Amino acid sequence: MDKNQLGVQYMQEGNWEEAAKAFNDAIEENPKDPVAYINFGNVLSAVDDDEKAVKFYQKAIEIDEHAGAAYYSIGNVFFTQDRFTEAKKMFETAMKKGLESSDNFFMLGLTLVQLNQGKLALPYLQRSVELNEHDAEARFQYGLCLAQLELIDEAILQLEKCIELDPDHSDAFYNLGVSFAFKETSVKAIEMFNKALEIQPDHLLAGHAKKLIENNL
């Protein structure tokens, strides 16, 4: 097994120290391999050393300006720092460099939502779901975006698929409840709010929404 593969295995096990050693060895063996720098950056990011992580991603880009994964990783750092405009630019650049991954489309969509550009976000969230049909969180965010644009029937479809994939997704049940309430299907809405509260008894929004509907019945 090569050092990069070994490092990835250590990362999957949460063994950051050994992962860092493996990627460091990979860099020493082949200093012109951008993948090793990206992987080392991912370890640093995982242990919250974002500043150093970005330097490794930038080094990868210096070696290969078409290293889409490096732009994607910098975008993730910017997203967690609420630097959404810069994150958007990085995810878009990753896409232009040929990174056609569901994760990149998902993060670009999510970033556009944060920038209040739901209409622009929609096709990226849709593409993310098309590329990875089993990603419950992508389904949820896609459904949420559809609901915010008042495409309620389409939103319900995605939120229902989300709970098929993740039956404990309380926020999906809550938003299904809101969607059914919007369609004035009160019984179904209350059923969804109850389900959200069953999973998460302190779900304040679900509790409040349920009371509102019950008081108006």
Results as ranks from 00 to 15, higher is better:
M1L: 06
D2L: 07
D2F: 12
D2T: 15
N4V: 14
L6E: 14
Y10W: 13
Y10G: 02
E13T: 02
N15T: 03
W16K: 05
E17C: 00
E17Q: 13
E17D: 10
K21D: 14
A22I: 04
A26R: 06
E28A: 13
E29G: 05
P31Y: 03
P31K: 03
P31E: 06
F40S: 04
G41F: 13
N42I: 02
L44R: 12
A46M: 11
V47R: 15
D48T: 09
E51W: 07
K52E: 14
K52D: 09
A53G: 03
K55A: 12
F56H: 14
K59N: 09
I61Y: 11
E62Y: 03
I63F: 05
D64P: 09
E65T: 01
A67D: 04
A69T: 14
Y72T: 05
S73I: 04
I74K: 06
I74H: 11
N76K: 13
V77Y: 06
T80A: 02
Q81D: 08
D82M: 04
R83Q: 15
T85N: 09
A87S: 13
A87N: 03
K88T: 01
F91A: 02
M95H: 10
K97Y: 06
S101K: 10
D103G: 03
N104V: 09
F105G: 01
M107D: 10
M107Q: 11
L108C: 05
T111S: 11
L112V: 05
L112E: 11
L115H: 10
L120S: 07
L122H: 08
Y124H: 15
V129L: 03
N132W: 06
N132E: 15
D135T: 10
E137P: 02
A138L: 08
R139V: 04
R139D: 05
F140Y: 15
Y142G: 04
C145R: 03
A147R: 15
Q148W: 04
L151E: 15
A155Y: 07
A155E: 05
L157S: 05
C162N: 09
I163D: 00
I163W: 09
D166H: 09
H169A: 04
H169C: 08
H169L: 08
H169N: 12
S170I: 08
A172L: 04
A172N: 06
N175P: 05
T185F: 00
T185C: 01
K188W: 03
I190S: 01
E191S: 07
K195G: 00
A196S: 15
Q200A: 10
P201W: 14
H203F: 13
L205C: 00
G207V: 01
G207W: 11
K210H: 01
K210S: 00
L212H: 09
E214D: 08
L217R: 12
L217Y: 12
